[in-house]
Design a protein around this nucleic acid. Structure first.
Lengths: 154, 154
DNA sequence: GTGGTTTTCTTAACGTGTTCAATTTTCGCG
DNA sequence: CGCGAAAATTGAACACGTTAAGAAAACCAC
């Protein structure tokens, strides 16, 4: 273990230059621009993530949704009922494995996403204009690298 | 290197290549490694951020803590009482501006951080080893660029 | 200085997600 | 079959987010 000059192994970094806080601040700054839209359409951030993840993959079991949307399984379980009550998703038992419950968008859920998509895309484009498409891609590439490095290890 | 984005202004990007989800996934992957330590010491993520922010600046008013720790003012207000009850922070009215309440670490709060710091630093170093110091710095620089671009605009 | 506005913080109330433990159902395997 | 493991759900306690409302202090024009 080589010791670092700026930190001697006992002192902590400046908070703005630590991954947890820097990533949080970045995300909050981005989300500020999306929140008004989400609340205007009556969905929470977490619900939106679940819907987006389901849109991307026709049908997923609860575990996959949990991982893809970064939401714990018990929360997925409860949210699924909420979203089902709203008519946006539907569930069924996996015929091949009765333990698994498969979740997918309903037609209404799909329509909902299609309806909101232009608004969301417009916000994203404004961000791209301000930050620069290349910078965003570079950031996303760095995030990928981080994920690969940390998830490989477990 | 950079993937071609297949969006026409109405379709949404693949979730893994969107800022909100990518940043969230990155942060969650990092936090996974810190959470056991935090809960072992009986503090929540948010409380930890408040303590770290206070450690960095001797004394801050509630608004500054709120911004630095990415926590809304009402939550700061509640958390301050919790942390005061634990003896980790103390508050006083700003003598120069009676509206402001100044928050700072107590000796016990400072000792607590000093006690936990080595553990935290060790986890961070493991992350650095896996990801690479240069890659982390590059990621932090990209985050800075994003923050500057978006916060300037308001 | 006075009155009105703005800032800063606090409180309340509600909803929602998190967390951990416990349970149920099903699967896989010896 | 019978056992242990996996997937999902549920319950309970808690913390935080969010909105709205309110109190206290500062600011500012007049």
């Amino acid at each position: 273990m080589t010791r670092k000059a700026a930190r001697n192994g006992f002192e902590l970094s400046e908070t703005r230059r630590t991954l947890p806080i820097a990533l949080l601040r970045a995300r909050e700054t981005v989300m500020e621009r999306f929140r008004p839209m989400l609340s205007a359409h009556g969905v929470t951030e977490q619900q939106w993530r679940v819907l987006r993840v389901l849109q991307e993959a026709d049908e997923l079991d609860a575990t996959d949704v949990s991982e893809a949307a970064c939401i714990l399984a018990p929360s997925i379980s409860r949210m699924t009922r909420t979203l089902e009550a709203k008519g946006l998703v539907e569930t069924r038992k996996d015929p091949a494995d009765g333990r698994r419950s498969l979740i997918r968008l309903t037609k209404a859920g799909d329509s909902f996403l299609r309806q909101v998509a232009p608004e969301s895309a417009a916000i994203y484009e404004e961000i791209e204009t301000l930050v620069g498409r290349d910078r965003i891609e570079a950031l996303l590439d760095e995030v990928d690298a981080l994920l690969n490095a940390l998830e490989r290890d477990g």
